[in-house]
């Protein structure tokens, strides 16, 4: 684990002082603090660099990294090539690629220090300090296209799938969350900046329910297997494979087989001469995520009245 040592010069640029320490406890104090200085200095003008490197400047036009024009217009932050690329003096003397620093070739820790001149935020801090991506040897440029013309940062799932390429095969299965079509993005479910290697977002966030809110509950009659907190349950992933499956509704197995992994239900094998032995469980237990009407997740009207009149299935019982 590498510890991220912020250079003193960078911290000074951020305007950090004891006043802001107090503000951590009392937010109101923060609101009366003076604004921190934003502007940096461009030591070597961009025009000198652009004599040879015009393409990156064109690509960065209208992006957050657009180079500051010579007249200084364009925003509160002055951005120059040398803001990120150190060693310009030597590079002017010897234009070899080795004489100037390319942050994309640095470690996460070193590149993040360069980026921290402007982008010191919780995402960056947590990525550097505790995120598994850092342990895997990735740096900021592995995901963020600094010179690219597109949106900054790249949100496309293609970025994730560059390394997590075995998930491509899962998204190709016949039932899938349509990530390859752009309907769902990886970061809709995965919080990549989550601290301390928690694979999903916080347990109370319940990412599945941000889209499938109708299934969140609570229900008067809960199917405990759907509740991650329950002694009986593993939550949504107990039955569903979120990336893809060959079975409808992202199920891990075909419906009845899936249910039987936990519910042997021997009575279904023999009652009515085995009539229901090969039926799909969800035919009757339709409200399987939880019910407002019945403890066995029967929708209203199931089982029919005759089942209860026979004495075998008193209403609300087995």
């Amino acid at each position: 684990m590498l510890i991220f040592n912020w250079p003193k010069t960078k911290l000074a640029n951020l305007g950090v002082n004891m006043q802001s320490a107090c503000a951590l406890a009392i937010s109101a104090i923060m609101l009366i603090l003076p604004s921190a200085p934003f502007a940096g200095d461009v030591l070597i003008d961009n025009e000198t660099c652009l004599e040879c490197h015009e393409d990156p400047a064109v690509a960065m036009r209208h992006t957050v990294h657009q180079l500051t024009p010579p007249d200084g217009s364009g925003g509160a932050i002055a951005i120059g090539c040398v803001s990120c690329h150190a060693g310009a003096d030597a590079h002017l003397d010897d234009p070899d690629v080795s004489t100037i620093e390319n942050p994309a070739n640095l470690s996460m820790e070193a590149e993040a220090t360069v980026c921290a001149a402007c982008h010191l935020n919780d995402h960056q801090v947590s990525m550097v300090e505790t995120n598994p991506h850092e342990l895997a040897g990735l740096n900021c440029s592995a995901c963020h296209a600094i010179h690219a013309a597109g949106e900054q940062p790249r949100r496309s799932s293609e970025t994730c799938l560059t390394c997590h390429d075995d998930q491509k095969g899962e998204f190709a299965l016949s039932s899938n969350h349509r990530v390859l079509e752009g309907v769902v993005e990886c970061i809709d479910c995965h919080d990549i900046a989550q601290k301390l290697q928690v694979p999903f977002g916080d347990i109370l966030t319940r990412r599945c329910f941000s889209c499938h809110g109708e299934l969140e509950g609570p229900y008067p009659f809960e199917h405990q297997a759907t509740n991650a907190y329950s002694v009986e349950g593993g939550g949504c992933l107990e039955c569903h494979r979120p990336h893809g499956s060959i079975f409808d509704r992202l199920l891990r197995e075909p419906g009845t087989q899936l249910c039987r992994q936990c519910h042997a239900a021997p009575i279904h094998q023999t009652a009515h001469n085995g009539l229901f032995a090969n039926e799909n469980c969800l035919n009757c237990h339709a409200d399987i995520h939880g019910s407002f009407d019945d403890e066995h997740y029967f929708p209203p009207g199931v089982p029919p009245a005759t089942c209860s009149q026979s004495g075998c299935h008193p209403l609300g019982g087995n």
Partner: peptide
């Protein structure tokens, strides 16, 4: 301030139509 971030948001997710469960 660079040390303070205030945020807020609103979202709506909806689903309407007819679902066909597994044959039953």
């Amino acid at each position: 301030y660079r040390t303070v971030k205030l945020s807020g948001g609103y979202s709506r997710a909806g689903l309407d139509g007819n679902i066909l469960p597994t044959l039953g």
